[in-house]
Structure formats: structure tokens, C-alpha cells
């Protein structure tokens, strides 16, 4: 365990050194992703000029909704910081045969290829997320209880695990397919469904869609479950309120196990290249 931590810290340090070598580039990356977030917030602010909430009787008024967006920001920025570049690189490792090196090192291959490069500039959005949480809570005049403060980071972590697993499972298929640019695009399109509160998916089309993205591909629990802890006190009103947080843990464990299984299978099929 200590060895893994040491390796991780080395990766983190190397990436930071690399980022600091091109400091202007680092700054531009951070600033541009932050401005992207602000443009999105401007769009939502515009929406709230016309409507009091996202969905009638859902409780997603302006500041609760901003808490939702902030939670999504935290989770997305963590995934981008630690995993996205690495998942993106995996197909390149397979295509060029550089994966041989990762296989030969005496450390878990999935760990190595998942965390080699850390994009520190993506943490800019993490800070924006934290600031947005503070601002929205101040505006809402609501402070969650200690229990909710404990559960929130835990469920944010669960969300990161689910996103990571989905991304890595898709990336792992590049061993069979050779190229997987479309598949990572697929990740973006799928996670796009979790950008808004799950209450918006209702009606004859919305309800099945919500079930699919909750139970088959559990992207809807990623942001919804933690965000709810910040928005309202834990007073379960329906069966769903009880079950969903429990299910989120199951979903996180299952998707991680699934991604790991798929990755191992993929490694068995790996036949190196150009060596």
C-alpha cells in the first residue's frame, strides 16, 4: 500500500513539474476551463430569469440547482484531473505497443495506466465548485448537519468511481478495437445525461430513460445522490430516498469491479505491437 502511495506521489510531482515548465500554458488551460464554467452559469442564470425552478415542485430552485451544478463540477474536475488524460492515452499505448512497459513493472497495471499523468490545471474547476457551494449556501441560508457533511464527500467519491469505471471500461476496449476515439466521445454523450437533476426525466419517454441511466448505466446517481445531501436535510420521504443512496454504493462497487474485469480481459487479448 505504501508503495502505491509513493508511486502516486511521484506521478503527481512529475506532472506538476511538467506543468510548471510550461507555466503560461498551464494558466491558459485553467483559465479557459474556468471561463467555460462561468459561461454555463450565465446560461443557467438566464434560465432562472424566466422560470423559478428546474421542473415544477422539484425543489431545484436557483441556488439548490447551483449546488447541483457545483457537485457536478467537483466530480468532473476530479475525473479530469486524475483519469481523463490517462484513459485517452491508453489507446495510444496499445497502438504503439508501449503498454509492454506498463505490464513489465512490478505494480498493478490498471493503477499505473490510470494515474500516470495528473492534469493539475483541471483542479481550477474544483476550486470554482467549492466557491460555488459556499456562495449558494450563503444565498440559501442553509447549513447541512454534520452527518450530511460526512456523507457528501463519500458520495462525491462514489460518483468519481462510477465515472472513472465507465471511462476506463470504454478505454479498455481499445485493445480489441485498435482505436477508440468515438468511444470516449461516447463517454461524454452518456455523462451528459447526468448534468441535470434526475427529476427532469419524466413522462412516457423520460421515466424509462431515467431507469436506464440509473440502473443499467448508473450515471444519474453520480451527481444526484451527493447533491441532495447539500440541498435538503436527510428526512427520507419516499422509498426512493432510502434506496437511492444505498444503490449508489452498490453501483460504485459494481461498476469498478466491472471495469476491472473488462480491463483484465482486455490485457489477456493484448498482443503488443511494433516491438
Amino acid at each position: 500500500m505504501g508503495r502505491y502511495l509513493r508511486v502516486f506521489l511521484t506521478f503527481a510531482r512529475n506532472s506538476l513539474v511538467r506543468d510548471m515548465t510550461f507555466r503560461a500554458n498551464f494558466l491558459i488551460d485553467a483559465v479557459s476551463s474556468v471561463s467555460w464554467v462561468f459561461l454555463n452559469l450565465a446560461f443557467y442564470t438566464l434560465i432562472f430569469r424566466y422560470a423559478p425552478a428546474i421542473g415544477a415542485n422539484t425543489g431545484w430552485e436557483k441556488y439548490p440547482f447551483f449546488l447541483f451544478i457545483a457537485t457536478g463540477l467537483l466530480i468532473n474536475s476530479l475525473v479530469q484531473t486524475f483519469f481523463m488524460t490517462n484513459a485517452d492515452d491508453l489507446s495510444e499505448l496499445v497502438r504503439t505497443g508501449s503498454l509492454d512497459f506498463a505490464l513489465l513493472t512490478p505494480i498493478d497495471t490498471q493503477f499505473l495506466v490510470s494515474l500516470t499523468r495528473i492534469e493539475w490545471s483541471s483542479l481550477g474547476n474544483f476550486l470554482v465548485g467549492l466557491a460555488l457551494i459556499g456562495y449558494s449556501m450563503y444565498k440559501m441560508q442553509y447549513t447541512p448537519r454534520p452527518m450530511e457533511w460526512v456523507l457528501y464527500p463519500f458520495y462525491v467519491a462514489c460518483g468519481v468511481v462510477i465515472y472513472y469505471s465507465l471511462m476506463f471500461a470504454l478505454a479498455a476496449t481499445s485493445v480489441w478495437l485498435g482505436r477508440n476515439q468515438t468511444l470516449l466521445d461516447f463517454w461524454f454523450y452518456i455523462t451528459n445525461f447526468s448534468r441535470y437533476p434526475m427529476e427532469i426525466y419524466r413522462g412516457p419517454w423520460g421515466t424509462p430513460l431515467r431507469r436506464v441511466f440509473t440502473f443499467c448505466l448508473p450515471v444519474l446517481v453520480v451527481v444526484n445522490v451527493p447533491a441532495r445531501f447539500l440541498v435538503r436535510p436527510i428526512t427520507p420521504q419516499s422509498l426512493e430516498d432510502w434506496l437511492l443512496p444505498g444503490f449508489a454504493i452498490v453501483a460504485a462497487v459494481a461498476s469498478f469491479a466491472g471495469a476491472r474485469w473488462l480491463f483484465q480481459r482486455a490485457l489477456w487479448s493484448y498482443r503488443s505491437a511494433s516491438s
Binding site: A51, I54, F186, N192, F193, E199
Partner: peptide
């Protein structure tokens, strides 16, 4: 696939208009 994000927009705006 590029039409997929529009599905989210359909539901988002349905929710906005319903409120």
C-alpha cells in the same frame, strides 16, 4: 450521436417550462 445532447435539452426545457 451528436444529437444525443439534444435529448437532455428536450427534458431540461420541459422541466423549465413546467415550472
Amino acid at each position: 450521436m451528436r444529437f444525443l445532447p439534444i435529448v437532455t435539452q428536450v427534458f431540461l426545457w420541459a422541466a423549465v417550462f413546467s415550472a
